[in-house]
Design a protein around this nucleic acid. Structure first.
Lengths: 336, 336
DNA sequence: CTGAAAGCGCTAACAA
DNA sequence: TTGTTAGCGCTTTCAG
């Protein structure tokens, strides 16, 4: 910057004014500065600028998700990026891997770079740490997983409703004995989806049998094993339909059905869509989350806070959508 | 930091020493400082520190990929993140969307934050801009797509070899009339894969017919249309096997085969694996890229440069692997 | 409209 | 072993 000022024969502040497009600079001066900037290939140092600036903004935000390599997280990240771009802000991305302490470290590392705000998909027990971040005055928006006892903006799928829709859908197709396979119950979304299942089972008077409910599944292989076990029973005893509360669990269950040759017998609805679900045979009916909408809304909320909004924190519910593809429309075998 | 020094009753530099774990501080002092740090919840400002530090490192790197929401890019990003974590470095992520000018803007925005280095998957014509970044002295590693005339570290899949393997595989299963469907030829990988196809067609004396080669496809729908057209011909005229040079193209082609009911007649090998390829019927045989290895290797190379390596820039080739799943092992119909 | 001086939070160089 | 001073690149404040 000093070099630019020297070359243009002006003071430092004039360069600063031109670079920041402040008004009150004569066109002559501005032109001279612009020329010097171009000649030297000068680029302002955003960090140094943030250090001194009154609002202290770094124009960097952080996104902490479970794993940037998975489809859902990637889509959220991408949507956030788009909104950030419009605010001339760049995005630090980190994966927490369902691990509370890693999540904390990543968030800490982002805060050490003085991010303007943080979007976090919290793993189970990170509430305290999110509270700490809030206490530091860093705006935080929680996505995907909710954090019950914390006064913070949240953007969530309608998990309970969506799960209920799935079960209702199966019931409408004649099923009364519907199994549930779900994620670690340390994850809030898994609890909500299970609650949605239970509510509809009770409401519609479906068979309520704890042996139909398998929770705390972790990953595809685990889900496959659980499904094999659940469906290995006597046909009169096993469920005629399954609700899978998560993406990877659904895939594991599809594998199990294939192995048993039951993919056209047992109905299946999954929570959260996945690529190519429509190309499987039968196509997998799902209750789809709108990752993009979640990301966009979270980013908008975050920027509102960054720009000083002091409205009461609120929770935004992003609706899910049922996508019928065949597996959820299978009917139970005729009664004997 | 001043507050910490005051509370601990020491000088600024002592706090700095403790925080940075420099040696030469008495345990007494260190303990007093630690206590003050904890009490005030002090966290050093990484940006301010970088501003003054001799090496000027910000401990931030940037990754510019096509789209952070797609599987391949997400996996690369994740692998880079892991290596970065071990170097106490955080990762700015950006999507260029196959758009040279957006790519440039994102890279520029990262450089303005004084990243220590950049990993870029360049869209077609960005060579000049990468050159500019190099000229600024920012270490750059190119991944996935190569940039022929530039002296820069690159980490690439063995595109030509892998494509050749795919075609050879089909030939070994009796096919002599093999179609090619590929990406925009502005993308270097697409050109290399086409070259691999052509080389093997020539080497093995397979039928060389320009009507079997469809390039410059963009996206799934486009590929599906092209495949419908290619396969819509008289059976005696159409290919008995297809090689798809990219992920989304493969999926589009699978859709086309399904619509025509030809999925068990026409053999298919795709370049780049995709989730659930094994659950389709028939399973889709692919030449898989190792996104994780690419990311890891790119990050390692980048950190070597950041740490001052001045070795000649080199290109690392990451091998592909053939995964047989059924579609690539179909035989051509018996000769009439 | 323009520029000089001070200082953001930190570390390098040096002195005590 | 510890502290002081200067200054990284920038913006603020305030005086011309």
């Amino acid at each position: 910057m000093r070099d630019v000022a020297a070359l243009a024969g002006v003071g430092l502040k004039t360069v600063s004014r031109v670079v920041n497009r402040e008004r009150g600079v004569s066109t002559t001066m501005a032109a001279r500065v612009e020329a010097a900037v171009a000649e030297l290939g000068y680029r302002p140092d955003a960090g140094a600028s943030a250090l001194r600036r009154a609002d202290g903004r770094s124009s960097v935000i952080g996104v902490v998700v479970d794993d940037v390599a998975n489809t859902f997280s990637g889509s959220v990240l991408r949507a956030v990026e788009e909104v950030a771009l419009r605010h001339s802000t760049v995005v630090l991305a980190g994966s927490a891997d369902e691990d509370g302490s890693r999540e904390f470290e990543v968030a800490q590392a982002f805060i050490d770079r003085r991010v303007d705000g943080l979007i976090v998909a919290p793993s189970g027990r990170a509430n305290k740490q999110i509270a700490a971040e809030l206490a530091r005055g860093v705006p935080v928006v929680v996505v995907d997983r909710n954090v019950p006892d914390l006064d913070v903006d949240q953007v969530l799928s309608t998990n309970e409703l969506g799960a209920g829709d799935a079960v209702t859908h199966l019931a409408h197709h004649g099923h009364t004995r519907i199994g549930y396979l779900g994620d670690l119950t340390s994850i809030s979304t898994a609890r909500q989806r299970l609650a949605g299942y239970r509510a509809v089972v009770a409401d519609l008077g479906l068979e309520s049998d704890d042996r139909l409910v398998v929770a705390d599944l972790h990953g595809e292989a685990h889900a496959e094993g659980a499904a094999l076990h659940l469906l290995g029973r006597d046909p009169s005893d096993r469920p005629t339909a399954l609700f899978c509360a998560q993406n990877r669990i659904t895939v594991g269950v599809v594998r199990a059905l294939r192995r048993l040759g039951l993919q056209d017998e047992i109905a299946l609805v999954g929570f959260d869509d996945f690529p190519l679900a429509d190309l499987l045979v039968p196509g997998v009916t799902v209750v789809a989350q709108d990752a993009q909408a979640i990301g966009t809304e979270a980013a908008r909320t975050l920027f509102a806070r960054i720009e000083g909004s002091s409205a009461r924190p609120r929770t935004t519910w992003v609706p899910t959508a049922m996508i019928r593809r065949g597996s959820g429309e299978l009917r139970p075998p005729a009664r004997r």
